[in-house]
Design a protein around this nucleic acid. Structure first.
Lengths: 235, 235
DNA sequence: TGCCTTATGTTGGTCAGCGTACAGATTCGG
DNA sequence: CCGAATCTGTACGCTGACCAACATAAGGCA
């Protein structure tokens, strides 16, 4: 797969002016990443910025005890490495591959150079950062007020949007970590969704059968997220 | 109170080079704001950027039902109006005065101009934005995993830091909104803190007697927040 | 084939926080 | 001085999620 095709499959890079995209092409490389591969650990230096083409990255907040909580889910609509834009070169979260696929990466110094050069890139990254913050706030209230079933439905829909597929690999254990609940809680909620025939799954292979059904179960946070993204990035 | 003295009382502005500060002086005005005064509503245009001198601003995320959740607490260590830096001129949250005092405000177009002109201001605002994001993520996990007593202690300490005072006015009702819990839950937790002689209060007048005690009750999120701020802003 | 690892399902006791409702208590304004 | 508004305290049943432990099931691998 030629690099320009890969570049185009990330929505932040796809709409860059041709000259900016040509420069990016020279500085980027497209690599294949597999499930569970770790891209950054809290406190460690950020070596690359990552733009998912066909993979999904999950950023989780490390906590005192073993508990975790997802603070970001990044597909080809976004990127990993926002701190670089803010003059920080240390990773705040633990980010790992959640769905295997292709990712475009660019070394930190080159990335910073590209930002300086391309006003369009700058603008798009700023917009995306704003969206990320809004979504983080949305997730915070969602985690506080909504119950596991709703939040699981929302999360599955979000993964679907980012993988562009109705089937993906994710275990209940992992979902539990992302939602910040026990595995047992996910088992119950997932069982309920399967019973309703909205989804089916077996040993980590999840299939979504009824998107509308899932949307009706999930909280409005899911739609709120999408509306913000569309409004800011396409509006 | 002369404007330059007010400027110096906001930590983001205090350390600007002299020429930048002089320019700011011309474009800023210092106004007095009182409890419950609303500075911005979600969806409405951002007319000013606000830099607290001696007041405290609280930003809350509006939710579907009546429930609310605080996503930001801004004292003289920060500012309100970050979206402007990201090219967005619409307010995402509901922001209101939590403690009366002085605030420096600058009209949006002038603020954008100042950012362009002053690299130091730019850098400090970027750093602060990064800190805000980290704190938002911290609050998200705190809300998820820690119980009301811990979170109340943390919130009281945060207000103390931002008012620079051991006494301030805040009702249990308001605390409940900020924490996203019922008023009854705050009554119980606050009663417990008062019983321990860490605080005392009556009809919204809260006094903190034992900071160390409060810190021992609160979760580590409080310290984590401070460490991030110090590390990024002063480090 | 059979063991081992991984993934999923179930149960039962416990508890923090919810919803609701009501009861003092203090301050304020007329 | 008295009603009204505001703030704080208490009670009770309910429930979603917690903790811990165990049971089944499905692939991987020797």
């Amino acid at each position: 797969m030629p690099i320009q095709a890969v570049l185009a499959s990330n929505r932040l890079l796809a709409t860059l002016p041709i000259e900016d995209r040509l420069r990016m092409m020279e500085n980027c490389e497209s690599i294949e990443v597999r499930f569970a591969e770790v891209l950054s650990k809290p406190g460690e230096p950020i070596l690359y910025a990552y733009f998912p083409a066909s993979c999904v990255i999950s950023s989780v907040m490390p906590s005192d005890s073993g508990v975790q909580l997802e603070v970001g889910l990044i597909g080809n609509e976004g990127m990993l490495g926002m701190p670089l834009m803010l003059g920080v070169d240390t990773a705040p979260f633990h980010s790992a591959i959640q769905c295997s696929g292709l990712v475009i990466r660019i070394a930190t110094p080159l990335f910073l150079l590209e930002i300086e050069r391309s006003l369009v890139l700058q603008k798009r990254l700023k917009s995306y950062l704003y969206v990320s913050i809004r979504q983080l706030a949305q997730t915070a209230t969602c985690n506080r007020f909504h119950e596991v079933l709703q939040r699981l439905a929302r999360l599955l829909l979000m993964i679907r949007d980012r993988t562009h597929s109705d089937e993906f690999h994710i275990t209940q254990e992992l979902l539990a970590h992302m939602l910040g609940v026990r595995r047992v809680g996910v088992t119950k909620a997932a069982g309920s969704l399967q019973h309703e025939k909205f989804i089916s799954y077996s040993r980590g292979e999840v299939k979504i059968h009824n998107v509308v059904g899932l949307e009706s179960v999930s909280c409005r946070c899911y739609n709120a997220d999408k509306e913000i993204y569309d409004h800011i990035m396409n509006g």
